[in-house]
């Protein structure tokens, strides 16, 4: 069972309290962008087997969106952080690097 701690209300929320929102930190492209960028934004997800950054919503709690770092190969959760972050916080990245030395890092 997946348990994520909501960074706003501090509740350790179990999966049925949450709604998944797939890949985090997507850079949005709209009118005027190149076909490549627009296609990548719409469809080309990272889909890694390993460390992944995702959006989740605490739907049956405070209702807010937040972000989570998780391993898709083991379901281990590394941590959660507010949705207002444009990239994962440095301490979280350091923690993941320590646990997964082969991880290529967040780019």
């Amino acid at each position: 069972m997946l348990i994520l701690e909501c960074p706003y209300c501090g509740v350790k929320a179990e999966e049925t309290e949450l709604s998944p929102g797939y890949e985090a930190h997507l850079k949005r492209f709209g009118p005027g962008s190149s076909d490549d960028d627009f296609e990548a934004y719409m469809f080309a997800r990272k889909n890694p087997k390993g460390v992944h950054f995702e959006r989740w919503r605490h739907s049956y709690g405070c209702g807010k969106w937040f972000l989570a770092a998780r391993c898709t190969a083991t379901l281990e959760v590394f941590g959660t952080y507010p949705a207002q972050s444009s990239e994962p916080p440095a301490d979280l990245v350091a923690k993941i690097k320590a646990k997964r030395p082969d991880w290529k890092g967040f780019k």
């Binding site: 997946l2 999966e15 998944p20 889909n47 890694p48 087997k49 992944h52 998780r70 898709t72 083991t74």
Partner: peptide, 13 residues
């Protein structure tokens, strides 16, 4: 299930 997963295990709910 609603999230990326490679474990061949799903969620009970």
């Amino acid at each position: 299930d609603g999230f990326n997963n490679f474990t061949q295990r799903g969620s009970f709910h």
